[in-house]
Structures are given as C-alpha cells and as structure tokens.
C-alpha cells in the first residue's frame, strides 16, 4: 500500500517519520501524478488556509476531494482535520474543504497560541497508556452527523468537545501525534482505518 503525505505546507516530514516508525515508507504528495499513485493519504498540520489555496492553485483540490469521496483512507491532523470536515464554522475568505467526515469544525477553537496546550487523552480504539495530545491553535468538532464515531474528547466547563473522530475510511485528530514520537494513532490508521 502506498501511503502519501500531502506536502504543500506544514509538518509533513514529521508524518513521514511517524510512518517510518511503523515500517511504512511514506511518499510526499505535491502533484496530480502523486495523488494518482497513492492508496491512502495523510493531511498534515499546518495552515489550513494555505494548504487549501495551494491545492486549488495547482489543481489538486478536486482530485483529492474525489479520491476521499471514493473511499481512499485518509487521516488529517489539526489543519488536516479542518480540511476533511464537511463544513467550517468560521472559514477564512473562500476557504473550502475536501470533505470526508460529516462534521462542522471550529477553527482555533481553544484560542490563540498562548492557549495551545498538551493533555493526556483517552482514545477509544487505543488501549494502554493515554495518548499525549499536543494542541496547537487547534480546532474542535462543533457538530457532527450520526455516522461519525467520537474517539476522543476534551472537556471544558462540563462540555465535551470531540477532538478525534472517524467516519468510515476517514480519520481526523485536532492534535498532533506526529510531534510526540508515539506512533499509536498512525498504527491505528494503518492497521485499522486503511484495512476496512
């Protein structure tokens, strides 16, 4: 299986390295030909507006959208979560998403950089020690359809905000497992999400 990492902007090298730790050689994806050659895609952390604009400028946007809608296994972290959402609550001007998960996300939901944080998370499909969630100007899931499975949430003032979700072949986390050296979320993507 060829796993690609969208390499327009952001921390794509960290995802390549996490895949490497799982024994998979990830491919950097920058062109239409690259997209045609992959079986699964990771959309990294970065600036969602920048990634979306570059994808449009180079004719990748509709191709990626189409592949995801056809069932290509896809994982988005942070900016990647925003890009696989059906809608954005507060989009920047003409900011679109690839879609894939029936949810609406709120960008920078936890606040600006001074509010960026780390916290231990329970992750429904991953047993053992908690997952260390690194949230950097992170989004959360504001609302979602009935087909969306919540894998992890953060509670603020008694309200649950989903921060890891899956719908079929698409996985999204508001946090960055690629920055922690713990590759269990990537393994879950490779061994479960990609196999279904």
């Amino acid at each position: 299986m060829n796993v690609g990492v969208l390499a327009l902007q952001g921390d794509f090298r960290e995802h390549i390295s996490a895949l490497g730790d799982c024994g998979v050689t990830g491919k950097l994806v920058k062109t239409a030909a690259d997209i045609a050659a992959i079986d699964a895609l990771i959309i990294p952390g970065g600036e969602s507006t920048t990634i979306s604009k570059l994808a449009k400028a180079f004719g990748l946007f509709d191709l990626i959208s189409k592949r995801i809608s056809e069932g290509m296994p896809t994982y988005g972290s942070c900016a990647g979560m925003i890009l696989v959402a059906k809608t954005i609550l507060d989009p920047a001007s003409d900011q679109d998403t690839f879609g894939g998960i029936d949810m609406e996300v709120r960008r920078n939901a936890f606040g600006r950089q001074t509010e960026s944080f780390e916290v231990d998370l329970d992750f429904k499909t991953i047993s053992g020690a908690p997952i260390r969630g690194v949230f950097i100007r992170a989004p959360w899931v504001e609302s979602h359809g009935s087909q969306v499975e919540i894998l992890s949430s953060v509670e603020i003032s008694g309200v649950q905000h989903p921060v890891a979700v899956r719908q079929g072949s698409v996985l999204a986390t508001a946090f960055h497992p690629e920055l922690t050296g713990d590759n269990r979320v990537h393994r879950y993507f490779l061994e479960d999400v990609c196999k279904k």
């Binding site: 390499a7 327009l8 902007q9 952001g10 921390d11 794509f12 090298r13 960290e14 952390g45 970065g46 600036e47 920048t50 942070c78 900016a79 950089q113 960026s116 944080f117 780390e118 690194v134 949230f135 950097i136 100007r137 960055h176 920055l179 922690t180």
Partner: peptide
C-alpha cells in the same frame, strides 16, 4: 511548554 512553542513553528514550515 517547549513542545507547543516549538510545535507552533513546525506548523509554519514550508510557508
């Protein structure tokens, strides 16, 4: 913490 501070810059890479 250092990880969210440095991590913020990681998200700007390639930009």
């Amino acid at each position: 913490g250092a990880r969210v501070k440095r991590g913020m810059a990681e998200m700007l890479k390639g930009g």
